[in-house]
Nucleic acid binder design. Structure first.
Length: 439
RNA sequence: GCCCUGGUAGUAUAGUCCGGUCUAGUAUAUGCGGCUGUCGCCCGCAGGACCCGGGUCCAAAUCCCGGCCAGGGCGCCA
């Protein structure tokens, strides 16, 4: 089959922008064949683009021989252009269809597709991820990533307005001793380097110059995790703010969450309808539960967690049933948190770290940070870390480190919240986990 | 890493417990034919599968062992 070039054609409209008022006007549409329903003397071709679909109608007796032969050749997923006349009609759900004057075929496709792109016979996630480029053409996937995009836009707007500067810190780092998560190692001109697990230390250093910073970018964890909510590569939305404490950044965070939900509802009603999901805009302030309150809540439900330990997943599920929406967990035992979280001055066994939970999922983690070198070194040693490997970071504390606080949102987990998807791989374009490195 | 469950046409599933009319059923997709208003179009025909290796048995998709892979859970997780 001979393929056409785009020539001087330019798109005049997306599918969804073709309206009944345009009756009789000529439009140029680009996209892909989603479906063909051939009734013999009449053929319906569904043209899909990023924004939706439009029906192209070809009448065997009326169409030109050129249009007829082009439309005979069409198959699913062919990339095509259609120049035709808008026809207002009462027969189609959209109230319009397009009668082609000319069809251009830019690219063909295999006749048998690895997954059903209309969604009639849904494929398993594994099969879909193996054919991800094609899978992402499905309307519900497009909806997921439009919602994610909208959320990121809302976050940027919100933080810009409040004086946060967007920054970019290194992904390749020298020290493997930040503690906690395992790091991926890489060869750096013959030296051993690591992929960053978080921008934590850099964003803290930046508060002494830029005061309020945020960063949106990928980070890496070489953990053995095999769950629906962990990835080896994920996107973190990190902020750090000078002259603030946990309480201040928690207020900021709950306002932001409310804002994201509002904007997503406002800008993505069609996408949410496609996903058959609705977002409830939360009221603020969010519930604030202390660690001790959580433990006694759990005890009442018959779940015992020894004081000082992190809360195990099954206990979090129970907690999520008691508190089915957003809530904070505050006043964690100092020993259970990262070394840079500020212990409470009135009771150093507790700290000013917090988690923002959504049901049973940890959505955001943050806290007041330690701003004093001596205390930070003490905490490093208590965590079994070597202050020597933090000398460049500790140096910053000699030059006027202000009191500061911050948090980090997991973007994919946020997207799960906004779309109702239960597996983090669904809301990741090309997920990376312990078992998957391709595509 | 551990535990549980599973692996059947391109896709999704039935069959597996209790081995034998399973010559492996169905839907969808694909190919061919038909059809003037479909929108999960419809109708007819066709081709297409038991994860790999070993074992038990007269007989294995079905039972046993090993491997690989997947899903869920747990653990790990600034």
């Amino acid at each position: 089959m001979e393929l056409d070039s785009i020539g001087d054609w330019r798109r005049t409209h997306y599918s969804v922008d073709v309206k009944p008022e345009m009756d009789g006007r000529e439009v140029t549409l680009f996209g892909w064949v989603q479906e063909i329903r051939d009734l013999g003397a009449i053929r319906f071709v569904i043209l899909q683009d990023r924004e939706g679909t439009v029906q192209i109608i070809v009448l065997r007796k009326k169409a030109s021989s050129k249009v007829l032969s082009k439309s005979d050749a069409l198959q699913k997923r062919y990339s095509i252009g259609v120049r035709g006349v808008v026809k207002k009609t009462t027969i189609t759900p959209r109230g319009i269809e397009v009668i082609p004057n000319e069809i251009r075929i830019f690219s063909a496709a295999e006749s048998s597709l690895p997954i059903d792109i209309t969604g009639k016979t849904p494929a398993n996630l594994e099969v879909r991820l193996d054919a991800r480029a094609l899978d992402l053409c499905r309307e519900d996937n497009i909806s997921i990533f439009k919602i994610q995009h909208t959320a990121v836009g809302a976050i940027r707007g919100f933080l810009f307005e409040r004086g946060f500067l967007e920054v970019h810190t290194p992904r390749m780092i020298a020290s493997a001793t930040e503690g906690g998560a395992e790091l991926f190692s890489v060869d750096y001109f013959g030296r051993k380097a690591f992929l960053a697990q978080s921008p934590q230390l850099y964003k803290e250093q930046l508060v002494m110059s830029l005061e309020r910073v945020f960063e949106i970018g990928p980070f890496f964890r070489a953990e053995e995790s095999h769950t629906r909510r962990h990835l080896s590569e994920f996107v973190s939305i990190d902020i750090e703010q000078a002259f603030a404490d946990a309480d201040g950044v928690m207020q900021l965070l709950e306002q932001l969450m409310q804002h994201i939900c509002r904007v997503a509802n406002e800008k993505c009603p069609k996408e949410l309808a496609t996903l058959k999901y609705s977002i409830k805009v939360p009221e603020i302030p969010f519930k604030r539960l202390t660690y001790d309150e959580v433990l006694s809540d759990l005890k009442r439900e018959g779940v015992e967690v020894p004081w000082g330990e992190d809360i195990p997943t099954p206990a979090l599920r129970t907690l999520g049933k008691i508190h089915p929406y957003f809530y904070y967990i505050t006043d964690w035992p100092t020993s259970s948190r990262a070394f840079y979280i500020q212990p409470r001055r009135d009771n150093p066994d507790l700290c000013e770290g917090f988690d923002l939970m959504w049901r049973w999922v940890e959505l955001v983690s943050g806290g007041t940070r330690i701003a004093f070198r001596e205390l930070l070194m003490k905490r490093l040693r208590e965590k079994g870390l070597n202050p020597e490997s933090f000398k460049y970071h500790l140096q910053a504390f000699d030059y006027g480190m202000p009191p500061h606080a911050g948090w980090a949102i997991g973007l994919e987990r946020l997207t799960m919240m906004l779309t109702g998807k239960k597996n983090i791989r669904e809301v990741t374009l090309y997920p990376r986990d312990k078992f998957r490195l391709t595509p």
